[in-house]
């Protein structure tokens, strides 16, 4: 197969293959609603089942890594797969492919919104929608909280974060970077002291079973 040859011989991938990558991810874009996670099964079906570009095991790893990289998991996964298939050009092609339909739809909706936002029906609808958006954000917090908050330490960190944001007005970017630093420091110190740290919910469960 063309793409395997491109990978194994480390030749420069052909532009037709780059175009094929672009078109594949272009197709995935417009049919998914509800955030990046909805795209994951689509990507899997397309690159594992249909195109057989990536093995099932490898794609799981790609998704796992894409979650740890900043940015949307769907776009990250596409970029990662594109890179594996055809280097930097493949990465850029996949990224643009997955982004372009979304981009056009959002720009289209923005134009539409600016045109209709003063219409009294739309204004009334958006009063209702804004309450639903608050619910959506609470729901997002609830879902991530289910896996992120599993002991006193994680709960304390969460409460302190909310308090800092409200009362100290520290830039959230600094809190995020600081949090990563504190995480690394804390685990290292506890390791030196010989204290085990359950670094996610799974480990916390395992620890509970051992104890």
């Amino acid at each position: 197969m063309q793409q395997e040859k491109a990978q194994t011989t480390k030749q420069r991938p052909s532009w037709t293959f780059i175009l094929q990558i672009f078109l594949t991810f272009l197709k995935i874009g417009p049919v998914t609603f509800g955030g990046g996670y909805a795209m994951i099964p689509m990507i899997e079906r397309e690159v594992v089942d249909r195109k057989k570009w990536i093995k099932p095991n490898d794609v799981t790893e790609v998704f796992a890594i894409s979650e740890s990289v900043p940015g949307a998991i769907a776009i990250n996964s596409a970029t990662f797969i594109g890179f594996r298939l055809a280097g930097v050009r493949g990465a850029v092609a996949a990224m643009l492919g997955v982004l372009l339909p979304t981009f056009l739809i959002v720009v289209g909706l923005s134009m539409l919104f600016i045109l209709v936002k003063d219409n009294p029906y739309i204004e009334a609808a958006f009063i209702g929608i804004r309450s639903a958006i608050v619910a959506l954000i609470v729901y997002a917090a609830y879902k991530i909280g289910l896996t992120a908050i599993y002991d006193k330490t994680t709960l304390t960190v969460m409460v302190i974060t909310v308090a800092i944001l409200f009362f100290l007005h520290i830039h959230p970017v600094l809190i995020i970077i600081g949090g990563m630093g504190v995480g690394i420091l804390l685990v290292q110190i506890r390791k030196k002291l010989g204290i085990f740290t359950a670094m996610d919910k799974e480990e916390s469960k395992q620890k509970a079973e051992i104890v």
Binding site: S68, I137, V157, T161, I176, G179, M180, I184, M199
Partner: peptide, 27 residues
Amino acid sequence: MNKNIFVKSAFYGLRPIITGLIIYAAI
């Protein structure tokens, strides 16, 4: 990435903070 101890412990600190950020946004 996901097996590295520094990445894992960075996320250990990060996850509750992310939750806090979203709660703050909701309020």
